[in-house]
Amino acid sequence: MTYTARLRVWRGDAAGGALTDYEVDANEGEVVLDILHRLQATQTPDLAVRWNCKAGKCGSCSAEINGRPRLLCMTRMSVFEPGEVLTVTPMRTFPVIRDLVTDVSFNYAKAREIPSFTPPPDLGPGEYRMKQADVGRSQEFRKCIECFLCQDTCHVVRDHEENKPAFAGPRYLMRVAELEMHPLDVADRVAEVQDEHGLGLCNITKCCTDVCPEGIKITDNALIPMKERVADDRYDPLVWLGRTILRRGSRQARE
């Protein structure tokens, strides 16, 4: 079945822009990215839209459809009524470059601020031995496709530009959690996540989890466990007393 889809696409750049109305043919089984490609092919050859795999694995085509952060390639047209007007805008947390393409370099800057995997200094190459039970938790976080939808929807930076220097965002707080939960990582990730990456700014309202196209339980499995570890190290006198008596450091106590 072919029908006419009604679209309002944001066109413009950092200097300004507006929502522009279009009517495009749509076929059964298509996704929003298909419609944008047809729009590009038939009416607006200069429409800028970032995409790559069209299979929900590269994380390139992040945008906002009817105000909700989504992947263009994973949003089926069938979830909307045929007569419904679809409003497509770029992600609204990052600076726009042109049309639906944003400058996501904020995320790469945050990624570089996280010290890489730090194994024990006396552990040589080829000596890494881990059991599945020890790495199961952090494997969930490896599913991340870096679409930055969680970063886009997080109100800490979406609604407060001034928080960007202090807050890494859910994707990179999850990266710190991944390293902290790694059985062979010995860096002090707990102090780092609170002091350098702004975990305390997160108020666990779970929008990051809600928009994750990979279904990663970012809040329950990464952010809250990290908040609990911060509570261990900073706000729990019983834990402090136990560690003092047993003369164990933060990392040793978790062994």
Binding site: T153, R158, D159, G198, N203, C207, D210, R234
Partner: peptide
């Protein structure tokens, strides 16, 4: 803060759970 995802919150500033009283959530 926020009422729903991608719906702007009404507050001019935001400090999350970094200060009193919300730091007591710990």
């Amino acid at each position: 803060a926020p009422a729903a995802c991608a719906v702007p919150e009404p507050h001019a500033t935001y400090t999350g759970e970094t200060r009193f009283p919300l730091i007591l959530q710990n």
